[in-house]
Design a protein around this nucleic acid. Structure first.
Length: 297
RNA sequence: GGUGCCAUAGCUCAGUCGGUAGAGCAACGGACUGAAAAUCCGUGUGUCCCCGGUUCGAUUCCUGGUGGCACCA
Protein backbone atom coordinates (compact mmCIF):
# COMPACT_ATOMS: atom_id res chain seq x y z
CA UNK A 1 0.00 0.00 0.00
CA UNK A 2 1.21 3.42 -0.92
CA UNK A 3 2.33 5.85 1.73
CA UNK A 4 -0.40 8.36 2.50
CA UNK A 5 -0.40 11.73 4.14
CA UNK A 6 -3.83 12.45 5.56
CA UNK A 7 -4.30 16.20 5.90
CA UNK A 8 -6.99 17.16 8.40
CA UNK A 9 -7.63 20.87 8.04
CA UNK A 10 -10.25 23.41 9.01
CA UNK A 11 -10.72 26.78 10.68
CA UNK A 12 -9.47 27.41 14.18
CA UNK A 13 -11.78 26.06 16.84
CA UNK A 14 -13.55 23.56 14.60
CA UNK A 15 -12.22 20.57 16.55
CA UNK A 16 -9.21 19.35 14.58
CA UNK A 17 -6.99 18.58 17.56
CA UNK A 18 -9.18 16.01 19.30
CA UNK A 19 -10.24 14.39 16.07
CA UNK A 20 -6.71 14.12 14.74
CA UNK A 21 -5.72 12.14 17.82
CA UNK A 22 -8.67 9.81 17.29
CA UNK A 23 -7.63 9.34 13.69
CA UNK A 24 -4.03 8.74 14.64
CA UNK A 25 -4.96 6.12 17.21
CA UNK A 26 -7.22 4.39 14.74
CA UNK A 27 -4.50 4.22 12.12
CA UNK A 28 -1.53 3.90 14.46
CA UNK A 29 0.11 6.92 12.89
CA UNK A 30 1.94 9.96 14.20
CA UNK A 31 0.83 13.57 13.84
CA UNK A 32 2.55 16.48 12.13
CA UNK A 33 1.26 19.83 13.29
CA UNK A 34 0.69 22.44 10.60
CA UNK A 35 -0.01 25.33 12.94
CA UNK A 36 2.53 28.07 12.48
CA UNK A 37 2.08 29.34 16.03
CA UNK A 38 2.19 26.01 17.81
CA UNK A 39 5.82 25.72 16.70
CA UNK A 40 7.03 28.00 19.45
CA UNK A 41 8.02 26.68 22.84
CA UNK A 42 7.29 29.97 24.59
CA UNK A 43 3.60 29.83 23.68
CA UNK A 44 1.13 27.20 24.82
CA UNK A 45 -2.18 28.49 26.13
CA UNK A 46 -2.86 31.13 23.49
CA UNK A 47 -2.03 28.86 20.57
CA UNK A 48 -4.26 26.04 21.79
CA UNK A 49 -1.49 23.47 21.75
CA UNK A 50 -2.84 19.93 22.33
CA UNK A 51 -3.00 19.07 26.02
CA UNK A 52 -0.45 16.78 27.67
CA UNK A 53 -2.99 13.95 27.72
CA UNK A 54 -3.32 14.10 23.93
CA UNK A 55 0.41 14.49 23.40
CA UNK A 56 0.93 11.39 25.52
CA UNK A 57 -1.54 9.35 23.48
CA UNK A 58 0.01 10.10 20.09
CA UNK A 59 3.46 11.22 19.06
CA UNK A 60 3.28 14.78 17.70
CA UNK A 61 5.84 16.60 15.58
CA UNK A 62 6.41 20.32 15.08
CA UNK A 63 4.85 21.24 18.41
CA UNK A 64 6.80 23.75 20.50
CA UNK A 65 10.12 22.77 18.96
CA UNK A 66 11.71 26.19 18.46
CA UNK A 67 11.99 29.64 19.99
CA UNK A 68 10.04 32.74 19.05
CA UNK A 69 13.44 34.37 18.63
CA UNK A 70 14.29 32.14 15.67
CA UNK A 71 13.33 32.70 12.06
CA UNK A 72 11.03 30.22 10.39
CA UNK A 73 9.02 30.08 7.19
CA UNK A 74 6.74 27.94 5.09
CA UNK A 75 9.72 27.02 2.92
CA UNK A 76 11.76 25.78 5.86
CA UNK A 77 8.70 23.91 7.04
CA UNK A 78 8.38 22.21 3.66
CA UNK A 79 12.00 21.13 3.85
CA UNK A 80 11.74 19.94 7.47
CA UNK A 81 8.56 17.97 6.90
CA UNK A 82 9.91 16.30 3.76
CA UNK A 83 13.00 15.29 5.70
CA UNK A 84 10.98 13.79 8.52
CA UNK A 85 8.32 11.99 6.51
CA UNK A 86 10.41 9.02 5.23
CA UNK A 87 11.20 7.87 8.76
CA UNK A 88 7.54 8.14 9.73
CA UNK A 89 6.41 6.20 6.68
CA UNK A 90 8.87 3.49 7.62
CA UNK A 91 6.90 2.95 10.81
CA UNK A 92 3.43 3.30 9.33
CA UNK A 93 2.17 3.96 5.85
CA UNK A 94 -0.12 6.74 6.99
CA UNK A 95 0.89 9.98 8.59
CA UNK A 96 -1.56 12.61 9.75
CA UNK A 97 -0.98 16.29 9.23
CA UNK A 98 -3.34 18.67 10.98
CA UNK A 99 -3.44 22.38 11.44
CA UNK A 100 -4.81 25.64 10.24
CA UNK A 101 -1.93 27.29 8.43
CA UNK A 102 -3.00 27.04 4.81
CA UNK A 103 0.20 28.27 3.31
CA UNK A 104 2.29 25.81 5.28
CA UNK A 105 0.04 22.92 4.30
CA UNK A 106 0.26 23.97 0.66
CA UNK A 107 4.04 24.16 0.88
CA UNK A 108 4.14 20.51 1.88
CA UNK A 109 1.41 19.31 -0.49
CA UNK A 110 2.30 21.28 -3.61
CA UNK A 111 5.76 22.62 -2.99
CA UNK A 112 6.76 26.22 -3.45
CA UNK A 113 9.22 27.67 -5.88
CA UNK A 114 12.87 27.50 -5.05
CA UNK A 115 13.94 31.02 -4.22
CA UNK A 116 17.35 31.81 -2.73
CA UNK A 117 17.58 32.88 0.89
CA UNK A 118 17.81 36.56 1.53
CA UNK A 119 19.89 38.66 3.82
CA UNK A 120 17.78 39.90 6.77
CA UNK A 121 19.55 43.24 6.48
CA UNK A 122 17.93 43.76 3.09
CA UNK A 123 14.44 43.28 4.51
CA UNK A 124 15.38 45.67 7.28
CA UNK A 125 16.49 48.20 4.70
CA UNK A 126 13.14 48.08 2.91
CA UNK A 127 11.22 48.17 6.17
CA UNK A 128 13.03 51.42 6.87
CA UNK A 129 12.25 52.69 3.39
CA UNK A 130 8.59 51.94 4.06
CA UNK A 131 8.74 53.82 7.35
CA UNK A 132 10.42 56.80 5.74
CA UNK A 133 8.63 57.08 2.41
CA UNK A 134 5.54 54.94 2.82
CA UNK A 135 4.09 52.55 0.28
CA UNK A 136 4.93 54.92 -2.57
CA UNK A 137 8.64 54.56 -1.89
CA UNK A 138 8.31 50.78 -2.14
CA UNK A 139 6.33 51.04 -5.36
CA UNK A 140 8.92 53.20 -7.05
CA UNK A 141 11.67 50.75 -6.12
CA UNK A 142 9.68 47.76 -7.34
CA UNK A 143 8.74 49.40 -10.62
CA UNK A 144 12.43 49.81 -11.28
CA UNK A 145 13.62 46.36 -10.13
CA UNK A 146 10.73 44.17 -11.29
CA UNK A 147 8.29 45.98 -13.61
CA UNK A 148 6.59 42.70 -14.44
CA UNK A 149 5.74 41.91 -10.84
CA UNK A 150 4.73 45.53 -10.34
CA UNK A 151 1.71 44.91 -12.56
CA UNK A 152 0.65 41.82 -10.63
CA UNK A 153 1.34 42.48 -6.98
CA UNK A 154 -1.14 44.09 -4.58
CA UNK A 155 0.36 47.57 -4.59
CA UNK A 156 -1.28 48.46 -1.30
CA UNK A 157 0.25 45.56 0.60
CA UNK A 158 3.68 46.58 1.83
CA UNK A 159 4.68 43.07 2.94
CA UNK A 160 4.20 41.67 -0.55
CA UNK A 161 6.22 44.47 -2.11
CA UNK A 162 9.00 44.19 0.44
CA UNK A 163 9.21 40.45 -0.14
CA UNK A 164 9.65 41.00 -3.88
CA UNK A 165 12.17 43.77 -3.33
CA UNK A 166 14.36 41.77 -1.00
CA UNK A 167 14.57 38.96 -3.56
CA UNK A 168 15.39 41.36 -6.35
CA UNK A 169 18.16 42.95 -4.36
CA UNK A 170 19.58 39.75 -2.86
CA UNK A 171 19.71 37.85 -6.15
CA UNK A 172 20.12 40.60 -8.70
CA UNK A 173 17.21 39.03 -10.59
CA UNK A 174 13.56 40.05 -10.71
CA UNK A 175 11.40 38.29 -8.14
CA UNK A 176 8.92 37.31 -10.83
CA UNK A 177 11.59 35.28 -12.62
CA UNK A 178 11.54 32.79 -9.73
CA UNK A 179 7.81 32.20 -9.86
CA UNK A 180 7.26 29.01 -11.83
CA UNK A 181 3.71 28.49 -10.70
CA UNK A 182 3.90 24.74 -11.07
CA UNK A 183 2.78 22.07 -8.68
CA UNK A 184 5.28 19.56 -7.33
CA UNK A 185 4.03 15.97 -7.28
CA UNK A 186 5.03 14.09 -4.15
CA UNK A 187 5.98 10.42 -3.98
CA UNK A 188 3.27 9.79 -1.40
CA UNK A 189 -0.51 10.08 -1.66
CA UNK A 190 -2.19 13.10 -0.15
CA UNK A 191 -5.79 13.06 1.05
CA UNK A 192 -7.30 16.26 2.37
CA UNK A 193 -10.30 16.19 4.67
CA UNK A 194 -11.73 19.52 5.75
CA UNK A 195 -13.71 19.98 8.95
CA UNK A 196 -16.38 22.63 8.99
CA UNK A 197 -19.18 23.79 11.24
CA UNK A 198 -22.10 26.13 10.96
CA UNK A 199 -20.77 29.66 11.34
CA UNK A 200 -22.71 30.50 14.49
CA UNK A 201 -21.66 27.27 16.17
CA UNK A 202 -18.02 27.82 15.22
CA UNK A 203 -18.10 31.34 16.65
CA UNK A 204 -19.63 30.15 19.89
CA UNK A 205 -16.86 27.57 20.21
CA UNK A 206 -14.24 30.23 19.54
CA UNK A 207 -15.69 32.56 22.16
CA UNK A 208 -15.83 29.75 24.72
CA UNK A 209 -12.31 28.66 23.91
CA UNK A 210 -10.98 32.18 24.47
CA UNK A 211 -12.70 32.30 27.87
CA UNK A 212 -11.03 29.00 28.71
CA UNK A 213 -7.63 30.34 27.69
CA UNK A 214 -8.13 33.27 30.03
CA UNK A 215 -9.00 30.89 32.86
CA UNK A 216 -5.94 28.79 32.12
CA UNK A 217 -3.70 31.83 32.47
CA UNK A 218 -3.22 33.35 29.04
CA UNK A 219 -2.69 36.76 30.64
CA UNK A 220 0.31 35.52 32.61
CA UNK A 221 1.72 33.69 29.61
CA UNK A 222 1.46 36.86 27.56
CA UNK A 223 2.95 39.02 30.31
CA UNK A 224 6.09 36.91 30.30
CA UNK A 225 6.48 37.59 26.59
CA UNK A 226 5.82 41.32 26.77
CA UNK A 227 9.47 42.23 26.29
CA UNK A 228 9.59 40.15 23.11
CA UNK A 229 6.44 41.66 21.65
CA UNK A 230 8.29 43.15 18.67
CA UNK A 231 9.04 39.65 17.33
CA UNK A 232 6.96 38.47 14.42
CA UNK A 233 5.99 35.24 16.18
CA UNK A 234 4.28 37.33 18.84
CA UNK A 235 2.25 39.29 16.36
CA UNK A 236 -0.40 36.72 17.16
CA UNK A 237 -4.02 36.81 18.20
CA UNK A 238 -4.30 36.37 21.94
CA UNK A 239 -0.94 37.95 22.66
CA UNK A 240 -0.91 41.30 20.89
CA UNK A 241 -4.26 42.27 22.41
CA UNK A 242 -2.86 41.59 25.88
CA UNK A 243 0.26 43.56 24.99
CA UNK A 244 -1.98 46.54 24.25
CA UNK A 245 -3.67 46.05 27.60
CA UNK A 246 -0.30 45.88 29.40
CA UNK A 247 0.77 49.04 27.57
CA UNK A 248 -2.36 50.75 28.86
CA UNK A 249 -3.96 51.42 25.48
CA UNK A 250 -7.07 49.30 26.08
CA UNK A 251 -8.92 47.78 29.02
CA UNK A 252 -8.60 44.13 29.97
CA UNK A 253 -12.21 43.57 29.05
CA UNK A 254 -11.64 45.15 25.63
CA UNK A 255 -8.56 42.99 25.07
CA UNK A 256 -10.56 39.82 25.66
CA UNK A 257 -13.32 41.02 23.37
CA UNK A 258 -10.77 41.76 20.63
CA UNK A 259 -9.13 38.36 21.00
CA UNK A 260 -12.51 36.79 20.32
CA UNK A 261 -13.24 39.03 17.36
CA UNK A 262 -9.79 38.61 15.82
CA UNK A 263 -9.97 34.85 16.21
CA UNK A 264 -13.34 34.87 14.44
CA UNK A 265 -11.87 36.93 11.62
CA UNK A 266 -8.90 34.61 11.40
CA UNK A 267 -11.17 31.61 11.02
CA UNK A 268 -12.95 33.37 8.17
CA UNK A 269 -9.67 34.04 6.38
CA UNK A 270 -8.76 30.39 6.72
CA UNK A 271 -12.03 29.35 5.11
CA UNK A 272 -11.46 31.81 2.27
CA UNK A 273 -7.99 30.39 1.70
CA UNK A 274 -9.31 26.83 1.38
CA UNK A 275 -12.39 27.72 -0.61
CA UNK A 276 -10.51 27.49 -3.89
CA UNK A 277 -8.74 24.21 -3.10
CA UNK A 278 -10.81 21.64 -4.93
CA UNK A 279 -8.80 18.72 -3.62
CA UNK A 280 -10.37 19.12 -0.18
CA UNK A 281 -13.35 16.95 0.73
CA UNK A 282 -15.42 18.79 3.30
CA UNK A 283 -17.31 17.27 6.22
CA UNK A 284 -19.34 18.64 9.07
CA UNK A 285 -17.37 18.13 12.28
CA UNK A 286 -20.11 15.80 13.52
CA UNK A 287 -19.81 13.42 10.56
CA UNK A 288 -16.91 11.35 11.85
CA UNK A 289 -18.18 8.11 10.35
CA UNK A 290 -18.32 9.70 6.91
CA UNK A 291 -14.75 10.84 7.30
CA UNK A 292 -13.63 7.33 8.25
CA UNK A 293 -15.43 6.02 5.16
CA UNK A 294 -13.80 8.62 2.97
CA UNK A 295 -10.36 7.81 4.34
CA UNK A 296 -11.16 4.09 4.21
CA UNK A 297 -10.13 3.45 7.80
C1' G B 1 -54.75 53.99 36.73
C1' G B 2 -52.57 59.23 35.22
C1' U B 3 -48.71 62.17 32.85
C1' G B 4 -44.28 62.60 30.10
C1' C B 5 -40.45 60.60 26.97
C1' C B 6 -38.90 56.84 23.55
C1' A B 7 -39.63 53.07 19.37
C1' U B 8 -34.91 53.70 12.64
C1' A B 9 -29.38 48.12 10.57
C1' G B 10 -27.38 42.53 14.82
C1' C B 11 -26.12 46.56 18.96
C1' U B 12 -25.75 51.89 20.45
C1' C B 13 -27.75 55.90 18.13
C1' A B 14 -28.08 60.13 14.30
C1' G B 15 -31.39 61.97 10.51
C1' U B 16 -35.20 63.25 7.04
C1' C B 17 -38.31 71.88 7.64
C1' G B 18 -42.84 65.43 4.09
C1' G B 19 -39.62 63.14 -1.76
C1' U B 20 -38.48 55.35 1.17
C1' A B 21 -32.25 56.76 5.35
C1' G B 22 -26.51 56.85 7.69
C1' A B 23 -22.45 56.76 11.60
C1' G B 24 -19.55 53.81 15.13
C1' C B 25 -19.08 48.90 16.65
C1' A B 26 -20.48 44.04 15.21
C1' A B 27 -21.21 41.35 10.65
C1' C B 28 -20.39 39.81 5.50
C1' G B 29 -17.24 38.93 0.87
C1' G B 30 -12.39 38.55 -1.42
C1' A B 31 -6.84 38.34 -2.27
C1' C B 32 -2.57 35.53 -0.87
C1' U B 33 4.62 31.80 -3.47
C1' G B 34 10.12 31.83 2.57
C1' A B 35 6.69 37.36 8.19
C1' A B 36 0.67 33.84 6.82
C1' A B 37 -2.89 33.35 13.90
C1' A B 38 0.66 37.88 9.34
C1' U B 39 -0.63 41.50 5.62
C1' C B 40 -3.98 43.81 2.21
C1' C B 41 -8.68 45.03 -0.40
C1' G B 42 -14.02 45.42 -0.86
C1' U B 43 -19.55 45.54 1.03
C1' G B 44 -25.08 48.69 4.42
C1' U B 45 -27.16 43.92 5.26
C1' G B 46 -33.44 48.14 6.86
C1' U B 47 -41.73 46.42 6.68
C1' C B 48 -37.72 53.48 9.78
C1' C B 49 -43.17 49.24 15.93
C1' C B 50 -48.64 48.41 14.11
C1' C B 51 -53.78 50.12 12.16
C1' G B 52 -55.89 54.31 10.17
C1' G B 53 -56.01 59.79 8.71
C1' U B 54 -54.10 64.26 6.08
C1' U B 55 -51.20 64.61 1.44
C1' C B 56 -49.54 63.84 -5.41
C1' G B 57 -46.26 61.47 -1.82
C1' A B 58 -45.71 59.68 5.35
C1' U B 59 -40.14 56.68 8.35
C1' U B 60 -41.09 62.10 9.22
C1' C B 61 -47.31 65.47 10.64
C1' C B 62 -52.16 63.80 13.24
C1' U B 63 -55.77 59.97 15.87
C1' G B 64 -55.73 55.28 18.09
C1' G B 65 -53.10 50.90 19.54
C1' U B 66 -48.78 47.91 21.27
C1' G B 67 -44.08 47.64 23.80
C1' G B 68 -40.22 50.00 26.87
C1' C B 69 -38.42 53.70 30.38
C1' A B 70 -39.28 57.64 34.00
C1' C B 71 -42.23 60.23 37.32
C1' C B 72 -47.04 60.78 39.93
C1' A B 73 -50.73 57.86 42.26
Amino acid sequence: MKNTLIVLLGPTGVGKTDFSVELAEKTGSEIISADSRQFYMEMRIGTAVPGDDLLKRVKHHFIRFMSVREYYSSSIYERDVLRLLPSLFEKNNTVIMTGGSGMYIDAVCNGIDDIPDTDPAVREKYNKLYEAEGIEGLRIALKMLDPDHYTKVDLRNHKRIIRALEICESTGLPYSSFLQNRKTVRDFTIIKAGLRRERQQLYERINTRVDMMIEEGLEEEASKLFDLRHLNALNTVGYREFFDYFAGTISREKAIELIKRNTRRYSKRQMTWWSRDESIQWFDASEKEKIYDYLRI
